[in-house]
Amino acid sequence: MVRGLAAEVPWPPSVDDFFLPPIAGPDNWFTKFTLFVWVAVAITIIFFLVAYRNPKLVPTKSQWIAESAYGFVRDGIAKDIIGAEGIKFAPYLASLFLFIAFNNLWGIIPGVQLSPNTHIAFPAFLAIISYVLFIWVGVKRFGFAKYIKNQLIPPGAPAWLLPLVIPLEFASTFLFRPLTLALRLFANMFAGHVILLVFTLGGFVLLGSDNFALAGISIVSWAIAIVMTIFELLVALLQAYVFVLLTSVYVQTSIAEEH
């Protein structure tokens, strides 16, 4: 029985574990991933609408939670990084934070343990939106030519250094920013899922082994899986924070006056 279960466990974990067959319909329109995204969005929207249907000056518990989530992004990120101007970006940044955080949390929900952000598609389009946002904000503020000059030419750099510096500035601002933004989130979620798979499935594999001592170690393996789940909770929230933080930093550097 146990051996049969172990034989069914796909081992070692592979990339294919991340690609589940569609639930219904053609292609990839309705998969577990898109379902998770929809559920995460629905939960977020319902929670906020319910918590804020009747706001009071002295908040109720749920209203306080909703306000804290928004206030955290508004004051802790937008206002901190961008300054007083940042408050007008706060609603978007808060939406971004909630979207990433709730989707990341699928990675540790028992029975699911697979975040939609383990598919590069989701981090990628979020990174593209941030990319378009910070360029658009800068161009709107300074005009295209001045914005590009601000971004590519560090103030006070000697002329002979410019040919060396400009490609570096260009690459770091316009190539690596969106790439790292998307890849950081994707890789963290992907790695988190792999770690959980390794320790969870590894426990089954150990349990199914002929060696009695090895079978006992499966308990340890599962314990580690539980600890890693808690760790993944931190990672899920931290990565949402980092994504929003970096988006704010990029917006801030776009609209910063050169001094």
Partner: peptide, 29 residues
């Protein structure tokens, strides 16, 4: 305007910017 979190957020964003420049420089050149 004086949030106690200011320093940590400032520090984090500067760290990421610095790291970005170093890695970008290495990769590009």
């Amino acid at each position: 305007d004086q949030s106690p979190r200011r320093d940590s957020a400032r520090g984090a964003d500067q760290a990421y910017t610095a790291l970005g420049y170093l890695i970008s420089g290495m990769l590009i050149w």
